[in-house]
Design a protein around this nucleic acid. Structure first.
Length: 572
RNA sequence: CGGGGCGUGGCGCAGCCUGGUAGCGCACUUGCUUUGGGAGCAAGGUGUCGGAGGUUCAAAUCCUCUCGCCCCGACCA
């Protein structure tokens, strides 16, 4: 491709609206342009990258026995009402009415549709297992789109769905997909990690995510992994063995006592005022869970894991109680809630609270706390693990290693759905024993466009993008310094044509621009191997070959340039 | 949904507080010079100042409403 023929609108200045490096670079390098919040145009270079990612995905999916189809973007509301997700997915689901006033949704995922397809068509266990996939634009009305393609509202996704007769079959299919995902992401060049994750609104019995670890601010997820064994989980899901209160023998319970704590609302304020550590306080957090007010109790220095709480409650919606609700329930301002005398409210406590002695709680009265409280002083309805695991705690799997945390970008996910959708939509088959049973399903996603941005986030420097060769928009970038010079022009086109004849994708910068402009643009767009030359090098019959990653440059006679460039490319 | 910020030429921004008829850099066009890491000189084109309403002799500037975009939060009582 000739630069003059294509469309690569590079920007000299950082775009004002971008924050993280990958977003800035994709805009600056002319890969994407935003149309409206969370919705982007994919320009020619991006299109090349998308095609390359899609190709890898297709190859590995096909190799894993999956079959490609395309499902509609618009779905009738009834399908989602039947599965029960009409109410669960709620706001993220774009909805509209057609001219007949029928409700439609823009599909953010396709469990319902694929189940509808299979229902009645796959009738026998002999036709199983099956794995269908598609690569398609998806739409989810994210509450807050951000960071470019990282959390857009419209994005390209590969989604696959498996149908098995048994749970063992599902596990097999699941493992096969996991293997395929490792192949896909390793081919792209990622140091990808598979971590346990929450099932979220998808439902089902288990889930994993494929994460690309990043050191920049571009990671959206926090991952905890064991330094000794292979345990790794999204922090939303991660558990840990809380460090035993080492050496501390239980205190004798003391008599509880009200204390005046004027204006002391936060854990820091209260514990600072009372001169105790935050681990001596029990936070009482009030939530509205599907309309019911619930009090969650947790040690002062811990974080609540709302996902765990929500899952424990089997709730659809969980939000912090509003100030007026807190006032109504506790009779006090926000900041002074406590479990003692909190009637009519379900109290759920983290098990850690059970081991605490003589702790501080709010008194449900303004400017008042109670000290030397013990669990005998109030009633806990249920104990449930609702605390967030933290780095430094003990691994729940091997009981030995410490957990460490890092941030990652989710590029793929796997869900063991089980029979949630087949049950809801009545998708059954006749098993070998003659009994009608629901399909055991799995679903598996890869964010194609997000994967592209994750690559930029993972592979760039201060000058621009450094595409891994598997998904680079072009393999070679030819940069003649002065295209109007006859000799340079001849050499440029000779190299351009020969590389293409040998099966490579080549971009040639045939613009009449200053060398600096071309070199800077070359660094920006990040094609793996650059071949450049001007009068100076051609005088000696040589061209320069430079890898985008790293600095080393080789000079090579023109006649050997193609072979050498291909050799260098092959070593990447 | 809550809080904050920003909408001025294609892009990045100044001007707004203190109202007086719109400016800078980049980009673009033409010419000359230059030519190995974002050139120089000269000439030139480019704006419903997000939109609507209001105040005023006069509004980019003040007021009201509205639309859009970005950031933080949506959790730590």
């Amino acid at each position: 491709m000739l630069w003059s023929q294509t469309f690569i609108p590079t920007l000299r200045d950082d775009p004002a609206d971008a924050v993280i490096d990958s977003h800035k670079l994709m805009l600056r390098a002319g890969f994407i342009r935003q149309l409206t919040a969370g919705i982007y145009n994919y320009l020619p270079l991006m299109q090349c990258v998308i095609h390359k990612i899609e190709r890898i995905v297709r190859e590995e999916m096909n190799a894993a026995g999956a079959i490609e189809i395309t499902m509609p973007v618009l779905h009738p509301a009834e399908l989602w009402q039947k599965s029960g997700r009409w109410d669960v997915v709620g706001k993220e689901q774009m909805r509209m009415k057609d001219r007949h006033q029928r409700d439609l949704v823009l599909g953010g995922t396709h469990e319902e549709v694929i189940t509808w397809i299979v229902r009645g068509e796959l009738r026998s266990y002999r036709q199983l297992p099956k794995n269908f996939y598609q690569i398609q634009t998806k739409f989810r009305d994210e509450p807050r789109p951000r960071f470019g393609l990282m959390r857009g509202r419209e994005f390209i996704m590969k989604d696959a769905y498996t149908f098995d007769a048994t749970w063992d079959g599902l596990k097999n299919a699941y493992n096969k997909m996991a293997e395929a995902y490792f192949k896909i992401f390793r081919r792209i060049g990622f140091d990808v990690r598979m971590v346990e994750s929450d099932v979220g609104a998808m439902g089902g019995t288990g889930a994993h995510e494929f994460m690309v670890p990043v050191e920049t601010s571009g990671g959206e997820n926090v991952i905890l992994s064991c330094e000794r064994c292979d345990y790794a989980a999204n922090i939303e899901k991660a558990t840990s063995l809380s460090l035993a209160d080492e050496g501390a023998r239980p205190e004798e319970p003391r008599q509880k006592e009200m204390v005046f704590t004027p204006g002391m609302k936060t854990v820091e304020e209260v514990t600072g005022f009372l001169r105790v550590g935050p681990e001596k306080l029990v936070k009482t957090l009030l939530y509205e869970v599907d309309g019911e007010v619930v009090a969650a109790l947790i040690r002062g220095d811990r974080e609540i894991n709302e996902v765990k709480l929500k899952n424990y409650m089997r709730a659809n919606e969980l939000v912090m109680a509003a100030a007026d609700v807190v006032m109504r329930v506790t009779g006090a301002q926000v900041g002074f809630a406590g479990p003692i005398g909190l009637s009519r409210v379900r109290i759920i406590a983290d098990p850690e609270v059970k081991r605490m002695r003589n702790f501080v709680v709010g008194a449900n009265r303004d400017d008042t706390h109670i000290i030397n409280v013990n669990t005998v002083d109030f009633t806990v309805d249920e104990y449930a693990e609702i605390r967030q695991a933290q780095a430094g705690e003990i691994c729940p799997r091997c009981n030995q290693g410490r957990l460490q945390s890092y941030s990652g970008i989710e590029v793929g996910n796997l869900f063991m759905l089980g029979t949630k959708y087949s049950d809801a939509l009545g998708a059954n088959f006749i098993d070998s024993d003659g009994v009608e049973k629901p399909f055991v399903m799995g679903s598996y996603g890869i964010g194609i466009t997000r994967t592209a941005q994750a690559a930029v986030e993972a592979f760039h420097d201060e000058k621009g993008i450094i595409w891994p060769k598997a998904i680079a928009p072009y393999d070679f970038h030819i940069v003649p310094i002065e295209i109007t010079d006859r000799r340079q022009r001849e050499v440029a086109f000779a190299l351009y044509e020969e590389l293409q004849e040998r099966g490579y994708a080549v971009l040639m910068d045939d613009r009449e621009e200053r060398p600096g402009v071309k070199f800077n643009d070359a660094d920006l767009i990040g094609i793996p191997v650059r071949i450049s030359f001007g009068d100076r090098s051609l005088k000696d019959g040589q061209v320069e070959i430079v890898k985008r990653r790293g600095k080393e440059m080789v000079k090579i006679p023109v006649e050997k340039a193609v072979d050498k460039a291909i050799e260098i490319f092959g070593q990447l």
